Amino acid sequence: MNADALLTPAVRAALGLASPGGRRARLSTLIFHRVLPAPDPLLPGDPDAATFRWQMRTLARHFNVLPLGEAVQRLREGSLPPRAACVTFDDGYADNLTIAAPILRELGLPATFFIATGYLDGGRMFNDTLIELARRLPGERCDLSALGLGSHPLASAADRHKLVGVLVSHFKYLPPETRLQAAEALAASFGVTLPDDLMMSSAQLRELRALGMEIGGHTDSHPILARQDLAAAEQEIRLGKARLEEILGESPRLFAYPNGRKGKDYTEEHVALARSCGFDAAVSTNYGAASADSDPYQLPRFTPWDKTPGRFALRLLRNLYH
């Protein structure tokens, strides 16, 4: 028996103590963005299909996995089961349908997908433009002196991954109306052709919903809300919601703040906006687990980075005590 298998009884017992259900329950909510067909050195934070499968098997073994909407309601009512958990995805990548959804269905697990509607049907987020640019740049070096970013080697995948970090850090907090245009212009200046099928189409989103998966709002163009004036932030939230209603024929009840860190990416004003726009609850990326005392419009989530089932289960346990 391996070490991960030996951890199972102890971890399960500890999880039961940390989240006993009912009024004392705690809700663990996991965040994913993509599930890749194979490991990608430029996307080390995203699991491949094999990794995601054992992550979900571990989650199913130790937790009672619920749709987020149901979990939020039961958290309010004090009726959550012990070891309650939810699986969520942000942004709307096509591999959510083609790779993640079949694994979730194979294991009988629900999930909630938060969609930035402006990138459906052939769009591409600014960070993906930069990642795919770094992947495709020709030659052994890249001169970014015009941006004040110097010159960078391209000899290895590690070099290109480091370049991604430099580029994303430079572009991330530009105004959303100029950020994507600037990233696209940079790619064009190098003559690089980029993929246009990273995100779901409207038809694929309807297919995902037809599989029984929950769909939530994530704005239209994924701006950092705290860097917009309040009227623009409200327009983004409402437009994303309206476009989902048009595509799906139903109103999304859940919302995820882009980037999701309290104080840096959203404020109490945006919490009030999510409520006034008609959402029942909203999720952040603030670490931890939700309790009956948690603000339903600032529910915490976390990303599981661990590389083995045992460490993954232990992180789930640590998150409950955070």
Rank of each mutant, 00 (worst) to 15 (best):
A116H: 10
E77T: 13
D121I: 14
L80D: 00
T88H: 04
A111Q: 03
S79H: 09
R136Q: 11
F113I: 13
L133D: 00
L68N: 05
P82H: 07
P110W: 08
R74G: 03
N127G: 08
R124C: 15
G92D: 02
G123H: 11
R83G: 02
V72M: 04
E132Q: 14
S79R: 14
F113M: 11
A94S: 15
A85N: 06
G118Q: 07
Y119C: 08
A84K: 04
F89Q: 01
L109S: 03
A84M: 06
F126D: 03
L97D: 00
D90H: 11
D128R: 09
R83H: 11
P81S: 13
A101G: 06
L75T: 04
L137Q: 07
R135P: 01
G123S: 10
T112E: 02
I99S: 00
Y93F: 15
L109P: 03
N127K: 07
E77H: 02
L104M: 05
D121E: 11
D91A: 12
R83P: 01
T117Q: 06
E70S: 14
D91F: 10
V87R: 00
G78T: 14
P138N: 12
F126S: 05
N96Q: 14
P138K: 13
F114Y: 15
E132S: 06
G92H: 06
E106K: 09
R83K: 14
Y119Q: 11
I115P: 01
I103T: 12
R124G: 02
A101E: 00
P102H: 11
F113R: 08
V72H: 03
L133K: 03
G69W: 10
V87H: 02
E77L: 15
D91W: 09
R124W: 11
S79K: 13
A84Y: 04
S79T: 15
G118V: 14
A116V: 14
A100M: 00
L133F: 12
N96L: 08
E132G: 07
A101V: 08
G123L: 11
G118T: 14
R135N: 05
I131H: 03
F89G: 00
V65N: 02
D91N: 13
A101L: 07
A116E: 02
L66F: 08
T88L: 05
F114T: 13
V65M: 03
A85I: 13
L104P: 00
L107S: 01
T117V: 15
G92F: 07
A71N: 07
A101Q: 02
P102N: 09
L130P: 00
T129W: 02
R74N: 07
I131W: 03
L97A: 05
E70L: 13
Y93D: 01
G78I: 14
A134P: 00
L133W: 02
L133S: 02
L66Q: 03
F89S: 01
